[in-house]
Design a protein around this nucleic acid. Structure first.
Length: 319
DNA sequence: AAGTCAAGCAACCGCATCTGC
DNA sequence: CGCAGATGCGGTTGCTTGACT
């Protein structure tokens, strides 16, 4: 058809169709994850090479944790690596098996937005009338939450607030088996640096900003049930704003190395496997073939024929 | 049931870097 | 060495979905 030729010369944008995915997968099977531009020059797809590469990296590549929420542990790693490397999402993603730079970037972006909203709320106690929609969201995030007056971000007493709650396993590939998570907070004012917030911390700040203690909330079993909580045991005791300023120092996160994280054996980048070592690009999708050189054929040799239909859970590091 | 709003996600865009000629 | 194309990366946008009124 005359129109087909015209169509093939046009660049297609937007969501990918299953047929396009299939073409792309077949191309990678044949030639490996490269020569993206040739996909279009050969007339296989009306997509740019960049678009093809992005689709493969973000959605089609094997062993991706698509549709899987970030676990508390992954969140913690992102937080620490972001503090160390900055917005080097591709680099950070190499420490998170099955996660892409886009995943990490989106996760961080969402988290930043949430933090901004929380901090804005806690910082503007008199703006309750203008923040009705925001308090609405709080209810959404914390089922069972009851309206309480918005307060200044309060300080806890020096006594430790401690809470434990069950961790929800959201991914079959989770490496973490711990069923309990403990968080200790010495001074809530220590949590002013967004980089150190985990989702659990965020929830705490939300609650505290409204006059509820995390402990009280935990008692009522309504603590972020949909988000797997971090294996964090947070004992911050910053002394001053000067100290806080050091958070901008990429090495300052190492100050938290001795942070009590029993499950992690250290709070900085010396996190337990699988986060100990970055995952190289060649390891993605070829996790079981560490002995094989990375050739286009070897890349797929060990995969079952239906590998793209069912993603296997990542093996535990000990296996 | 319909409308509103925000979160999450997929994909695009522009720039930087790499690589081959 | 310089150039052009390919690839990688980070920022941004727009769509979808779900919670809520």
């Amino acid at each position: 058809m005359e129109g087909n030729r015209v169509e093939m010369s046009q660049i297609r944008k937007g969501p990918w169709k299953a047929e396009e995915d299939e073409v792309l997968i077949n191309h990678v099977k044949k030639y490996g994850p490269r020569d993206w531009s040739s996909i279009r020059s050969k007339g296989l797809l009306r997509r740019t090479g960049k678009s093809c590469r992005l689709r493969w990296v973000n959605k089609l590549r094997p062993n991706l944790k698509n549709g899987c929420k970030f676990t508390g542990e992954e969140e913690r790693v992102v937080i620490e690596l972001q503090a160390q490397f900055g917005n080097k999402w591709a680099k950070i993603a190499t420490y998170l098996p099955g996660r892409t730079d886009n995943d990490v970037k989106n996760f961080w972006s969402s988290r930043q937005k949430r933090l901004a909203r929380i901090l804005q709320n806690s910082g503007t106690p008199s703006s309750s009338s203008s923040s009705s929609s925001r308090s609405l969201k709080v209810k959404k995030e914390i089922p069972g939450f009851h309206d309480v007056p918005v307060m200044e971000a309060p300080k806890l007493s020096s006594s430790m607030e401690e809470l434990s709650y069950s961790k929800e396993q959201s991914c079959s590939s989770s490496y973490l088996d711990n069923s309990q998570t403990t968080i200790k907070v010495e001074q809530f004012t220590d949590l002013v640096n967004p980089k150190l917030y985990t989702d659990a911390n965020i929830a705490q700040v939300e609650l505290m900003s409204r006059g509820k203690t995390p402990y009280a909330e935990a008692q009522s079993q309504v603590f972020f049930p949909q988000i797997p909580q971090p294996q964090a045991y947070l004992t911050l005791s910053l002394e001053s704003q000067d100290l806080l300023a050091k958070f901008e120092d990429p090495y300052f996160s190492q100050m938290f190395a001795p942070m009590d994280v029993p499950e992690l054996e250290g709070g900085n980048l010396n996190v337990e496997q699988p986060f100990l070592e970055p995952v190289t690009s060649s390891e993605f999708g070829a996790k079981d073939e560490t002995d094989n050189p990375m050739t286009p054929d070897a890349f797929f040799d060990d995969f079952p024929a239906d590998m793209f239909d069912q993603m296997e859970p990542l093996p535990k590091p000990s296996e």
